[in-house]
Simulated assay, not measured.
Amino acid sequence: MSRDYEQFPDNDNGNVLWQMYEDGDDLTEPHEIEFSLAFEKQENAEKCAIFLLLEEQKISMYLDEEVAPNLWILSIHVTMEPDYADIVDLEEWFTKIAQQYQGEYDGWGCMTYVYDED
């Protein structure tokens, strides 16, 4: 199949989704997608976490000293069909939220599950 650039644009998000599709991942099924925010201060990460909990988001938080001392990572776990437009919308929303708490948006990831009947 040739790549549909409307569904899988030629950018980072489109490339990841295209690779998932090419690897046999069913993008019409819900996946847990993890969006990450990074904070230099624990207090800011905690305030952002409370805000996201009040927005009914599923979150986790950890200190990632392997990357930098005092780097707090806040992960938001969203179960959704991996759709380009929806991912871009969530990235924009999480970017704004991170900035409100002196953090930054740090990308998204998704575990892919390929079921092989053989």
Results as ranks from 00 to 15, higher is better:
V16I: 14
L17W: 00
W18M: 05
W18S: 03
Q19L: 09
Q19V: 02
M20T: 02
M20K: 03
Y21T: 00
E22C: 09
G24H: 07
G24A: 05
D25M: 14
L27M: 06
T28W: 08
T28R: 13
P30A: 03
P30W: 01
H31R: 13
E32V: 13
E32D: 10
I33A: 04
E34W: 00
E34F: 02
E34M: 05
F35Q: 03
A38I: 05
A38S: 12
F39K: 07
F39T: 04
E40I: 07
E40V: 09
E40K: 15
K41F: 11
Q42H: 12
E43I: 08
E43N: 09
N44W: 06
N44H: 11
A45Y: 00
A45I: 01
E46W: 00
E46S: 05
C48T: 00
I50M: 12
I50W: 07
I50V: 13
F51D: 10
L53Q: 14
E55A: 14
E56W: 08
Q57Y: 14
Q57I: 05
K58Q: 14
I59F: 04
S60A: 10
S60G: 15
M61H: 06
Y62V: 02
L63S: 14
D64H: 00
E66A: 11
V67S: 14
V67I: 15
V67R: 15
A68N: 14
P69E: 15
N70V: 02
L71N: 06
L71Y: 02
L71C: 08
I73D: 01
I73T: 08
I73A: 02
I73Q: 07
L74A: 01
L74W: 02
S75L: 10
S75Y: 03
I76H: 05
I76L: 11
V78F: 02
V78Q: 11
T79G: 04
M80E: 08
E81Q: 15
E81Y: 05
E81V: 10
P82C: 05
P82K: 01
Y84P: 07
A85Y: 09
A85E: 13
D86G: 05
I87A: 00
I87Y: 00
V88W: 00
V88Y: 00
D89Y: 09
D89N: 11
E91F: 02
E92D: 12
W93A: 12
W93E: 13
W93G: 05
F94S: 01
K96H: 08
K96Y: 07
K96A: 14
I97N: 01
A98E: 03
Q99W: 03
Q99L: 08
Q99S: 09
Y101D: 01
Y101T: 01
Y101K: 02
Q102F: 13
G103D: 09
G103E: 08
G103Y: 04
E104C: 09
W108A: 01
W108C: 01
